[in-house]
Amino acid sequence: MSNREPLFSAKNRRLLTTPLGKENPITIQVLGICSALAVTVKLEPAFVMTISVIAVLAIGNVLISLLRKTIAPRIRIIVQLVVIASLVILVDQVLKAFVYDVSKQLSVFVGLIITNCIIMGRFEAFAMSNKPWPSFLDGVGNAAGYGIILIIVAFFRELLGSGSIWGYQVVPEVFYDWGYKDNGLMILPPGALIVIGIIIWVQRSRDKSLVEEN
């Protein structure tokens, strides 16, 4: 047991942190864009979506990793889908039972976690060939990387589109009297695309190693 890797070795820590920046699922791999456009009008649903995806991806990664030696390669995609779909339905049912308001806001998008490419992507790329613990960290890391972008986007969309943060009005009433108007574009999906574009631009201009050659 003495030569076992510590739980939070440098390698494991990297699993958790690189998806937040250098290997971010949204800004670098450009996965999960659909839901990033849909649930980021306000901060609260973006936050709940983040939590839900962290739960689904972390648990899913561990399950797939535990099962990885028993899964026949020919049906592995089906097995992965079944695992995702059941977890998502469970999350949806739990939300409906205990945080009804939030589940109403997220409505169809919780179900759409099933089609979130990040999850299938991590199952295929990581959990199928790694042990449960690193898979767990990889799941949490990637979902958090997805979530952090979601929350940044939601912050700006809610601020510029509705003049509020987490439902609380932050743009003072006098601004409106002076002729300030909330930006309607930010409320619609193209607003999210623009914000994500700006985030990608900022990230690449700060870290030149991300820029492809040619």
Binding site: V94, A97, Y100
Partner: peptide, 22 residues
Amino acid sequence: VILVAAILSSASMLLKPYQEAN
């Protein structure tokens, strides 16, 4: 498939009263 079906249907049955109350 059978295992998953069992898990999901029992979860649904357990949570139904809460959902309907909501």
